[in-house]
Write a protein that binds this DNA or RNA. Structure first.
Length: 467
DNA sequence: AAACAGACCAACCGCAACTAT
DNA sequence: GATAGTTGCGGTTGGTCTGTT
């Protein structure tokens, strides 16, 4: 087994010992490049004979230099050999961490850009606390960096009573989860997964966050979307009290405590609701960074945005041209063709979803106490028919989405692979990425940089001094 | 200017997966 | 197949910085 760093370091607490170790490190450093193989052999023998007390704590520049030199000579990996070969009094783990987080080339330092912040939110919505996987989508960023960023901001936002995700992510999350509604009747997650798998759906669950909160936030946002623009203010607390369905709440399309979020009574113009598959506002490096994922999504003007003055921001001409260049037209054409397929796919998915919910013989609908809508509408005094309600919701959703997909303008900017219903398995990287890219297009840099929250208080990228 | 609180960040720790013998 | 060694990941901690009172 790996020598436990803790075991080796337990005894290293006093300043004197630290000094000794530092001196030892200096000694090892002096060997430098001139160290002969014989010397190394001696060191190895010595190391084998005498337990080495490894150093811990912050790295010094000389230690860094030693590590860099080692990697330059021997390449990455075999980290436990670093101590043997260089005399560096650090465990392999520590060396690897230092290298990956601070020393390796092409690391991007500094604060996250708004684009990166949005992407992190999107990835987190899709992947959960999979920091390493998230980092894979953010070249130059480390998992530790992303983790730190997310934890601090999440903590801050939660303390401020604000939703963790920006609205475009919430909406996408809700839509991507909508297909799982039919499985809500399962209280057992495993059974749910199995059923979903059997039905051809992916079984992995979305981000393991406080799902009730997330969905409440989603609900809140959808309410916002369906509300007249001026009527918008921050509730004292956006989080509803814990609800019995919280456990599977992620499988709901919309959350508790309100009437149909996309109720026909509050019609939205189809053109107002873009799923955001349009062209990216990202340009240059941002596009190339994500190019392998879904290149077409980054080109062409973004025509539509989320409905509501809260989120809709006129697209500046410069942004429309951002992804352009000489090849923009060709890319757009290509994109358009691809889009037709995507539209079909999404339409099919929606139809499936619609059918599923319509036909779904949920025991809850007969008043059994289960069922998403029964619970979702509170069970307190709201006796609205769940089935009818679902139909209304879904019809409205269809009304909003399908025309959007068919509309030439929307189609020209739509790039949805249909993966909305398929992604989210940990092993389905492309799907997850599709969503991320779609989401980028949904919100884009403009929305990530703009206010998305409550009375101007809540900004996704400008939360540094909230509280 | 000092004290305090919060934010930020680097590093550590434990665990699990993977690989080699 | 069992065991040892290695690597990677995610959670957590502790130190430092910065802004506020």
């Amino acid at each position: 087994m790996e020598r436990s760093p803790g075991a080796a370091l337990l005894a290293s607490s006093s300043p004197e010992e630290e000094e000794e170790k530092t001196a030892a490190a200096e000694e090892g450093r002096r060997h430098g490049e001139a160290a002969a193989a014989e010397q190394q052999q001696e060191e190895e023998d010595e190391a084998a004979a005498v337990p080495v007390v490894l150093k811990k704590g912050p790295w010094t520049t000389s230690e860094d230099a030693m590590l860099v030199d080692h990697v330059r000579r021997h390449g990455e990996g075999n980290w436990n050999a670093v101590q043997r070969l260089t005399g560096l009094l650090r465990c392999g783990k520590s060396c690897r961490l230092r290298w990956t987080n601070h020393l390796r080339p092409n690391l991007k330092k500094g604060s996250f850009s708004p684009d990166e912040e949005l992407l992190i939110a999107q990835l987190h919505a899709q992947l959960g606390n999979k920091w390493a996987r998230m980092a894979a989508h953010l070249p130059g960023r480390t998992d530790n960096e992303i983790k730190n960023y997310w934890n601090t901001r999440t903590k801050r936002r939660q303390r401020a009573g604000l939703p963790v995700y920006p609205p475009e992510v919430q909406l996408q999350l809700a839509l991507s989860n909508s297909k799982r509604c039919r499985y809500d009747e399962f209280s057992n997650v495993q059974a749910l997964d199995a059923a979903a798998s059997a039905a051809g759906y992916t079984s992995s669950r979305p981000a393991p966050l406080d799902l009730a909160r997330q969905l409440a936030a989603t609900s809140q946002m959808v309410q916002i979307l369906s509300s007249p623009p001026p009527a918008f203010s921050a509730p004292a607390s956006p989080w509803p009290a814990a609800r019995p369905f919280a456990r599977n709440a992620q499988y709901f399309q919309f959350a508790a405590h309100h009437s149909s979020p996309v109720s026909p009574s509050t019609p939205l113009h189809p053109a107002d609701l873009s799923l955001g598959y349009g062209g990216g506002v990202r340009a240059g490096a941002e596009q190339s960074r994500l190019a392998p994922l879904s290149p077409a999504s980054h080109h062409g003007p973004r025509v539509l945005e989320l409905p509501s003055n809260q989120f809709l921001q006129p697209m500046p001409p410069a942004s429309a041209a951002a992804g352009g260049g000489g090849g923009a037209a060709a890319l757009l054409l290509d994109h358009h063709q691809h889009q037709n397929q995507n539209a079909e796919s999404l339409e099919k998915m929606l139809q499936e979803l619609h059918d599923a919910i319509k036909v779904d013989p949920s025991p809850a609908a007969s008043g059994g106490g289960g069922g998403v809508l029964e619970r979702r509408h509170g069970g307190g005094g709201e006796n609205k028919s769940g089935g009818q309600h679902r139909d209304d919701d879904m019809d409205t959703l269809f009304d909003m989405m399908i025309p959007t997909l068919n509309a030439p303008a929307a189609a020209a900017t739509t790039n949805h692979s249909g993966s909305t219903s398929q992604h989210s398995s940990d092993d389905q990287e492309p799907s997850a990425v599709d969503l991320a890219v779609d989401l980028q297009a949904t919100g884009g840099a403009s929305s990530s940089a703009q206010d998305w929250g409550l009375d101007g208080v809540c900004q996704w990228s400008s939360m540094s001094r909230i509280c």
